[in-house]
Design a protein around this nucleic acid. Structure first.
Length: 139
DNA sequence: GCCAACGTTGGC
DNA sequence: GCCAACGTTGGC
């Protein structure tokens, strides 16, 4: 099982909306590296849900509930989407500042490739984020 | 095939 | 609001 982080601007699609929806097709990704990451996601993989621009913090977890398929919002069948379902909110969201200040997290792809919207996370990093967020999940 | 111009993302 | 990073586009 692998781990990932997805970004969303809360003004466009927030964690709260995601929870209310119960499931979401992760569409509109138009970046080659992000597409590779989408294509590598497997059912049941763990995902961190990050609020970019407004909040700048990891706010909850999600899981992959459908593996990559052609993004229905694109004419070009090479662009991919996955479906995600919400897991649990983090009792204490983990901010970008927290992540940068934590030596275990400062090397995250989130930090190294600021503009990548779908990025890999190591299992150590994943557990660390959950732990810092006060999650009672596996971490 | 190079590279300048431009648009977008996202942190500050 | 500004700017750095960086991907894309288009002229040559």
């Amino acid at each position: 099982m692998a781990f990932w982080l997805v970004k969303s601007e809360p003004d466009a699609y927030s964690w709260q909306t995601f929870v209310r929806d119960g499931r979401s097709a992760w569409t509109g990704i138009r970046n080659a590296q992000a597409r590779i990451n989408l294509n590598t996601m497997r059912l049941g993989d763990g995902v961190l849900f990050y609020h970019s621009q407004v909040g700048k913090e990891v706010v909850g977890t999600a899981t992959v509930v459908r593996e990559a398929y052609p993004d229905p919002t694109s004419e070009d069948p090479r662009w991919l989407a996955v479906d995600l379902a919400p897991g649990a909110p983090l009792p204490r969201p983990v901010t970008l500042t927290d992540i940068k200040a934590d030596p275990e997290l400062a090397e995250m792809t989130l930090i190294r490739h600021t503009r990548l919207s779908v990025s890999p996370v190591t299992d150590t990093q994943y557990r660390r984020v959950l732990q810092r967020g006060g999650s009672t999940e596996s971490g």
